[in-house]
Amino acid sequence: MSVVTLTINDELVSAQEGETLLSVLHERGIDMPTLCHLDGLSERGGCRLCMVELEGSARLQAACVTQVQEGMIVHTHSERLVKYRKMILELLFSERNHVCAVCVMNGNCELQWEAAKIGMDHVRYDYLNPDLSMDASHDRFVLDHNRCILCTRCVRVCDEIEGAHVWDVMGRGVNSRVIIDLNQPWGTSQSCTSCGKCVQVCPTGALSAKGATVAEMEKQHNFLRWILDGREKNVWSYGNGK
């Protein structure tokens, strides 16, 4: 694979062709807020937090879905970008009932932490306060729509890694909801394998494990790398990886 050279924040950087800009930024240790992106899952480009400026392009681009190109000149933290990121986080907080103080993920939540990092210390928009339900019908897991940001990591991990496609999104716009099978209680799902991957990848308190205390609620993403590496090396195939 050939190497391309690009300029990120006035610094020359080399990267592998075909890599996404986001992965280069992460490799370089440049802090780039993300919510829908998760290493090991397909990219969605939906949260719009990793928007960057590309010189010569009128539009901002999401780094997670932009491939590096020779000669690209990238700015990641201009005043305008930081302002937009703050506004997007404000919109997310206003959309549903993110009451951190009474959330199971308090202290371990990616949304909460991204807001703190960027200095989004208040929301200027109306809180929409939608009337949303919780689903605690599963033996081990809980779904709380109040905390969901529709990043669809659960949908993707269930489809791409577990292969069950229990989850999907129903409706559209601000009325979208993640659903299980035919929008039915989780406990009644016949396709759910109860593997818990969705819970582990959920960035907020929308999906949580029952019976854990708030302090224990830290989620583990490393299983994704482990599974994907194993797949690549064929460790679970007959006659391979003995």
Partner: peptide, 10 residues
């Protein structure tokens, strides 16, 4: 101006 750790909600 608070440090990020000092400005989390919750």
């Amino acid at each position: 101006v608070l440090e990020p750790e000092m400005r989390t909600f919750g």
